[in-house]
Simulated assay, not measured.
Amino acid sequence: MITTDPVGEWFWETSVDVLQGQGARRALQLFGRLRSLGSDLGLVDGWGHGGVSVVTLKAPRHVRYEWEGVGPLDRAVEAAEGRFGEDATLHLWSVLPGEWLDADGAARRSERLFALRLLVWPQGHAGVSLAAYSDAWMTLDLRERPQPEVAAANAPRLAALLGAVSGLLGAEVEPGDPTYFGRPTASGFEDLADEGTDYADPWSTFAVPARWQRMLNLLPKGYEEQSYETFTEGPVRYVEVRSGGRTVGHLWAGTDDNSAGYEPRTAAGDIAFTAGVPLLQEFAKARQAGTRSLDALRAAASSMPGAVVQDIESLDALQELSAH
């Protein structure tokens, strides 16, 4: 399962040579080498959404330079070069897509497998963090079900990545605090197979609400009051929402004919959320016009080439379908 919030995070302290005004460029070189470690292990594949910023140290602090986009950070760092000096910090970050292995050994891609960050202070002191967004490294998945084959295939790869980062930086790794989903260690995650997780069903309890909150942040204020009920205990019907040849989410309506919504496929990345915005807005218009939710779903499906309305036993099952 892929979450919108990290399942775990790790930290290192290091330094960057900032002499002769080359701090930003050398920070980029280090950042690229860190990313390459994941690529060499077959975990990271490409660049995702990222950013560069220069923030002043003295109060009131302000952002002197900022860039966000998709892909390598080279040009943004070049533009930030002259603005990072003795009175500011430099921030580099990138979401890293990559692949994890399922129980059958098949590769499963996520557009948000890791997030890498580098923060550099004026004197060259630097901090590195790596956050993971998949439960593939854990002996229990986020629904507390044993997944020994998945963990056996993926946990050693995460351990190798953490060890490689420590080796490159010449620094010990500092595991982050426990999350709703797991307990990070210096080599990955604690084995929870015997004692279980800290929370019951963290996928339903934390991951699904966080995902829906992210959707709401993209929608106009008051959306929930204008549209259908967003929960149902009965069966649902749904259509796959596709973009660029891949499934990015699932648009659904309850068989009670009064509930409907959209479940983003988190592994698809940001497009999973943005693709749902116009669809949910159309649902709100349909509800305001007195259209029953199943009719609204059929109307939406008719506008999607090749879309087929399918049945599934529950909203919970559809949410889990969208988890990978």
Results as ranks from 00 to 15, higher is better:
W252K: 03
L161C: 05
A152D: 08
R157E: 07
G234V: 05
E240C: 09
S187K: 06
T197W: 02
E229C: 07
E240M: 08
F206M: 09
T266I: 15
I271E: 13
S227I: 01
E172Y: 00
R211A: 10
R214D: 05
D256K: 10
I271F: 03
E263F: 06
R265H: 11
Y223D: 09
A210H: 12
R143V: 10
R237N: 10
D177G: 00
V241E: 08
D257C: 02
L142G: 05
D177P: 10
G249T: 11
I271H: 01
V208S: 10
A193C: 00
I271A: 08
G222C: 08
A160W: 03
H250N: 11
D194V: 13
P156I: 01
P175M: 08
E233N: 14
A272H: 11
D198C: 00
A207L: 07
E144R: 14
L218A: 09
A267Y: 07
E195A: 09
A152W: 04
V241P: 08
Y238N: 11
F273C: 09
A200G: 03
A260M: 10
L216N: 10
F206S: 12
G249H: 04
Y238L: 08
L142S: 09
T179E: 10
Y223A: 06
A155M: 01
P209M: 09
P175L: 08
P202H: 06
D270A: 15
Y238H: 09
R242K: 15
E144I: 01
E263G: 02
D256S: 11
Y199A: 12
G176V: 05
S227R: 00
A160F: 00
L169N: 04
L161M: 13
A253V: 08
R183A: 15
A267N: 11
Q147R: 14
P202E: 04
E225L: 13
R145F: 02
V165H: 03
R237F: 04
R242P: 00
D256V: 06
A268W: 02
L168F: 03
S227T: 15
P178A: 07
W212A: 14
V239A: 10
T205K: 15
K221N: 13
A160H: 02
P235L: 04
